[in-house]
């Protein structure tokens, strides 16, 4: 399984599709323990990112990721903008110059993205943030390689597991114990990113 610029664009297309479909749901997750804008933020950002990359003609996946990063950074806003932006930026830097990414090169890219998110957000696992999806998923990929169904299951499980966590980072942290019982919004949108990846890789 190899990833070229076309597949990278497809990944963004599929992610956008899922985000748009679940815009209301994402916002509803952000309402009880946040400010109720996550779906809006993500839908605005990925819509613009897709428009940008669909119009372009990219030699490498890294070039796609860079434009996605810059668009997300300037269009999503809030906390998730710089986080997803940083993720794609680091992925771009880590995969720079390669026309086609093999499995190990792409996973290196995802590792860089995860590190970027953790650094930017000063968060670690267990804080009820998108890190709680990114870290287990990246680790699972390191261990298991690209296996679409396993990837999907891992991402979904990680997302659902944020429900029982108490938030200590981001807006949800102000709700302290009351944040328990709600899935984290950024974890859910991260799930869609990986679900889209699984579909693209699975050839759907």
């Amino acid at each position: 399984m190899e990833i070229n610029a076309t597949l990278a664009v497809q990944w963004i297309e599929k992610t956008n599709e899922k985000i748009q479909e679940n815009k209301e749901y994402l916002t509803s997750l952000d309402r009880p323990i946040g400010d109720g804008d996550h779906g809006l933020n993500m839908s605005r950002g990925f819509k613009e990112a897709l428009e940008k990359v669909k119009a372009g003609n990219y030699p490498t996946p890294a070039d796609v990721f860079k434009d996605v990063a810059m668009t997300l950074v300037s269009k999503v806003g809030g906390a998730s903008g710089p986080l997803f932006g940083t993720a794609f930026l680091k992925m771009s830097v880590a995969t720079a110059g390669q026309q086609v990414l093999n499995e190990s090169a792409f996973v290196k890219g995802l590792e860089a993205a995860l590190d970027g998110i953790k650094q930017r957000g000063k968060a670690t696992t267990g804080e009820k943030t998108m890190v709680d999806v990114w870290e287990p998923v990246v680790e699972w990929l390191q261990d298991n390689g690209f296996e679409p169904e396993g990837l999907l299951a891992e991402a979904e499980g990680a997302m659902n597991a944020t429900k029982n966590l108490t938030a200590t980072k981001g807006r949800a942290a102000y709700f302290k114990e009351k944040s328990v019982g709600h899935i984290d919004a950024g974890a859910a949108s991260s799930y869609y990113v990986f679900a889209a990846l699984a579909e693209v890789l699975g050839g759907k």
């Binding site: 710089p82 940083t86 930017r120 957000g121």
Partner: peptide, 11 residues
């Protein structure tokens, strides 16, 4: 000190 402000300004 809000997560969003800090991250966007730092970037």
């Amino acid at each position: 000190n809000y997560t969003g402000d800090v991250m966007n300004f730092e970037m």
